Amino acid sequence: MAAAAAAGAGPEMVRGQVFDVGPRYTNLSYIGEGAYGMVCSAYDNVNKVRVAIKKISPFEHQTYCQRTLREIKILLRFRHENIIGINDIIRAPTIEQMKDVYIVQDLMETDLYKLLKTQHLSNDHICYFLYQILRGLKYIHSANVLHRDLKPSNLLLNTTCDLKICDFGLARVADPDHDHTGFLTEYVATRWYRAPEIMLNSKGYTKSIDIWSVGCILAEMLSNRPIFPGKHYLDQLNHILGILGSPSQEDLNCIINLKARNYLLSLPHKNKVPWNRLFPNADSKALDLLDKMLTFNPHKRIEVEQALAHPYLEQYYDPSDEPIAEAPFKFDMELDDLPKEKLKELIFEETARFQPGYRS
């Protein structure tokens, strides 16, 4: 834990890192770190609560700039109880001085990944967590956004079992017609939660990839272990087919990539493993919904509104309290091709509203 900075004593240090967030945020305490930044909790002297502050230093890398800009653009436009918001952003007053960006968010005690390492969940908890994931996802999908990296560590939890989806750095506007060349190379989302079509096709992607990830998360809540822990690309596919069985001819016809289709045709026939054999203690309604989410063919996979209306979630289902976005989200430009200098300018502009004396 960093010592509390005395008023006016300059930035606090946390594990050798400068955290320049005073005077409003003090009493910093280390939480963890990701690929390009550290997260601390801090005391907000204005709202009198502890908050989470993520320090991001992305400006050396085009990919990190892209992810940072995506996350900020999306989260500043989203407003939903099951999606983490941005409360404040701290950065230098000029673009030349801006080396880091500090993002202030609600402090959540833990995440689903940490929880599943230590606790076996009751059916009631599984049901409530799944409902909140789908409630947040309904809003995301209504904005025409794909999260693309749903996994237990991106689901934040607090002691009252509130759940918030975080990390929109890989999110995209849904565009089933656009052929994202190089899709697989830039697709760094965790393999275990990846839909089979991501490994088999490169053309376009749809909201059904997020539903697949939610199915993987439900299976993990039922058993405290990942359902498809593939060691590499082909191993991942083999794990999936080992449980779902061989795809039907109709399902194979959806695979545009001939090499991928021929690979699947070359494999020995596998039978589907019954879900109640894998999860003998699970609620039968939970397994019915799991089956509809972990469907090989993305066109037959359940959609988020149908999933919310499934009998497993009937005690929570309330369409009048499951809000959607006001308007579909649009990125003005494809960020993939922009140089990091341009992305830095866009991050600077996007964060201006939090600067003292800002006038829109």
Rank of each mutant, 00 (worst) to 15 (best):
A2Q: 00
A3V: 13
A4K: 02
A7C: 02
P11C: 14
P11M: 14
E12F: 12
E12W: 08
V14Y: 09
R15C: 03
R15A: 13
R15N: 06
R15E: 05
F19V: 14
V21Y: 05
G22I: 07
P23I: 01
R24Q: 11
Y25N: 14
L28E: 00
L28D: 00
Y30V: 05
G34F: 00
G34I: 02
G34M: 03
A35M: 15
Y36E: 15
Y36L: 15
G37V: 15
V39T: 14
A42E: 11
A42I: 01
Y43I: 06
D44W: 08
D44K: 08
N45V: 13
N45S: 13
V51I: 14
V51N: 12
I53K: 01
I56R: 13
S57R: 14
P58S: 15
P58N: 15
F59L: 15
E60G: 11
H61M: 01
Q62T: 10
Q62Y: 11
T63F: 13
Y64K: 15
R67I: 15
K73I: 14
K73S: 08
I74H: 01
L76M: 12
R77I: 04
E81G: 13
I83H: 01
I83F: 14
I84W: 05
I86K: 00
I86Q: 04
D88C: 01
R91K: 00
I95V: 04
I95Q: 12
E96S: 04
V101K: 08
V101L: 15
V101F: 07
Y102F: 14
Y102G: 00
V104L: 10
Q105V: 15
D106T: 04
D106S: 00
M108W: 03
M108P: 03
E109G: 01
E109P: 02
T110N: 12
D111G: 00
L112V: 11
Y113I: 07
K114L: 08
K114W: 04
L115W: 00
T118H: 03
T118W: 08
L121P: 05
L121V: 04
S122Y: 10
N123A: 12
I126M: 05
Y128E: 01
L130H: 00
Q132F: 02
Q132S: 07
I133D: 05
R135K: 10
N144R: 10
V145G: 11
R148N: 11
K151Y: 04
P152T: 13
L155A: 04
L156M: 13
L157D: 12
N158Y: 13
T159F: 05
T159D: 02
D162C: 00
D162R: 03
D162P: 06
K164I: 15
K164Y: 08
I165R: 01
F168V: 00
G169Y: 02
R172C: 02
V173Y: 08
V173D: 08
A174H: 11
D177Q: 11
H178L: 15
D179H: 08
G182M: 11
G182I: 12
F183C: 11
L184R: 04
Y187T: 05
Y187V: 05
T190V: 05
T190F: 04
R191H: 09
R194K: 13
R194P: 07
E197Y: 03
E197H: 01
I198C: 12
I198K: 08
M199L: 15
K203S: 09
G204R: 14
G204M: 07
T206E: 09
T206V: 05
S208F: 10
S208H: 04
I209R: 08
S213Y: 07
G215S: 04
C216N: 01
E220F: 14
L222M: 13
N224G: 10
P226W: 06
I227A: 05
I227F: 15
P229F: 01
P229I: 05
K231D: 06
Y233D: 12
Q236E: 06
I240L: 13
L241E: 10
L244Q: 13
G245M: 04
P247C: 01
L252T: 04
N253Y: 13
C254N: 06
I255P: 08
R261C: 08
N262Q: 11
L264E: 02
L265F: 09
S266W: 03
S266C: 15
S266M: 03
K270W: 01
K270M: 13
P274R: 12
R277S: 15
R277L: 10
L278Y: 09
F279S: 09
D283G: 02
S284D: 03
A286T: 10
A286I: 03
L294Y: 05
L294I: 08
N297S: 09
N297D: 08
H299A: 04
I302C: 05
I302S: 00
I302V: 05
E303T: 08
V304D: 14
E305H: 05
E305K: 12
Q306V: 05
L308E: 01
A309Y: 02
H310M: 12
H310V: 03
P311N: 03
Y312E: 01
L313E: 01
Q315T: 03
Q315F: 04
S320G: 09
I324H: 04
I324N: 12
I324F: 14
A325R: 09
A325L: 08
E326R: 01
E326N: 02
P328V: 06
P328T: 15
D332L: 05
D332F: 07
L335Y: 08
L338C: 10
P339A: 08
K340T: 05
E341M: 05
L343S: 11
K344H: 07
F348R: 10
F348L: 15
F348K: 09
F348D: 07
E350F: 01
A352R: 11
R353M: 11
F354Q: 07
P356G: 05
G357T: 01
